[in-house]
């Protein structure tokens, strides 16, 4: 099974309509052309893929524990949530 990082990048790449190789870890979502609606859709796709709940309110995207400042930050946040919300 591919790593969390690869799976998150694949989801973001699909949302941004880019090749996986074009989604760099240091990129921001704005760099990748993902708007607020695209962000909400990406978060939904990540929740579905990993069966986790992501605390995210589009009214205050910079607040809360889920850091979306870059692709690397999102990978780290998803990794933390996957470990935290592991069943059993």
């Amino acid at each position: 099974m591919s790593s969390i990082k690869d799976r998150v990048i694949a989801i973001i790449a699909e949302q941004a309509v880019l090749e996986v190789s074009d989604v760099k870890l240091e990129a921001t979502l704005v760099d990748l052309g993902i708007d607020s609606l695209g962000l909400v859709e990406s978060i939904f796709a990540i929740e579905e893929a990993f069966d986790i709940q992501i605390p995210f309110n589009a009214n205050e995207p910079d607040q809360g524990d889920f850091d979306i400042s870059s692709v690397a930050a999102i990978v780290a946040a998803v990794t933390a949530l996957v470990n935290e919300q592991k069943p059993g």
């Binding site: 909400v40 978060i43 939904f44 309110n57 589009a58 009214n59 205050e60």
Partner: peptide, 20 residues
């Protein structure tokens, strides 16, 4: 809920602390 624009505590229009 799916749209992520709802507040979980209150509706505070125009307030800097509004959250949905």
């Amino acid at each position: 809920e799916g749209l992520r624009v709802m507040s979980k505590d209150a509706c505070r229009p125009f307030s800097a602390t509004r959250n949905g």
